[in-house]
Computed example of a mutant assay.
Amino acid sequence: MRASGQRRRLRSCWMVKNALIAGVDEAGRGPLAGPLTVAAVILDPQRPIAGLNDSKKLSEKKREALYPQIIERALAYCVIVVLPEEIDRLNIFQATMAGMSRAVAGLTPTAHSALIDGNKLPKDLPCPGRAIVGGDALEPAISAASILAKVTRDRLMIDMESTHPGYGFAIHKGYPTPAHLSALKLLGPCVQHRRSFAPVKVLLDQTQLF
Rank of each mutant, 00 (worst) to 15 (best):
F197A: 04
E139P: 01
A39G: 10
Q192V: 03
Q46E: 15
P140G: 10
S4M: 11
R11L: 12
A149P: 13
A27C: 15
K62Q: 11
L148T: 13
F210P: 03
T152R: 09
H180N: 01
H193Y: 09
S146I: 08
R11Y: 09
A183Q: 12
S4R: 14
E64C: 00
V202Q: 13
G99C: 07
T207D: 08
E139Y: 06
L187M: 06
Q208A: 15
S59V: 12
K201V: 02
R195K: 15
Y77H: 15
G168I: 01
T37C: 15
I70P: 03
E161M: 04
A95V: 05
A39L: 10
A50N: 14
A144M: 11
A27N: 10
S113I: 02
A33W: 00
E86G: 00
A114Y: 04
T108S: 11
L186G: 00
A114T: 03
R29E: 09
R102A: 13
G23Q: 07
R2H: 13
R2F: 04
A19F: 02
P126I: 03
R63G: 12
R195Q: 14
M157F: 12
A111S: 05
F169N: 03
I116A: 06
P35I: 06
G168V: 05
P165Q: 03
V133C: 03
G118E: 10
P128T: 03
D54Y: 04
G5I: 07
F197P: 03
T108I: 04
R153I: 01
V82N: 01
A39T: 06
I92N: 07
S113W: 13
S12C: 01
A105H: 07
K185R: 15
G106H: 09
G106T: 05
Q6H: 05
Y77K: 00
L186Q: 15
R194T: 04
V82H: 01
L187Y: 14
L58C: 09
G30E: 07
E85T: 12
V81L: 06
I70N: 05
Y175K: 08
G134M: 00
R8L: 11
T152F: 05
A103G: 00
D154Q: 07
A111N: 06
G168T: 06
L203I: 10
S146T: 10
V24D: 11
P45S: 13
R130A: 07
Q94K: 14
A137M: 08
G34W: 01
A76D: 01
A3Y: 09
L121G: 01
L138S: 14
E139C: 14
L75K: 12
D25I: 03
A3F: 02
R155G: 12
R2S: 12
L184K: 04
L187K: 09
I70W: 08
D117T: 12
L90A: 03
D136V: 11
F197Y: 14
A40Q: 10
I80D: 00
D25S: 05
R194W: 07
G118F: 08
A65N: 11
D154I: 04
D54S: 05
A76K: 00
A50D: 15
R9T: 14
S162G: 00
P165E: 03
G30H: 04
L181T: 09
D88I: 01
T163E: 12
S182P: 01
G99I: 09
E85R: 14
R2T: 12
L58I: 11
T37F: 05
D44F: 11
M157P: 13
V41S: 10
R2V: 08
S182T: 14
I71R: 15
E26T: 10
M15V: 05
A144Q: 13
R195S: 13
R11D: 09
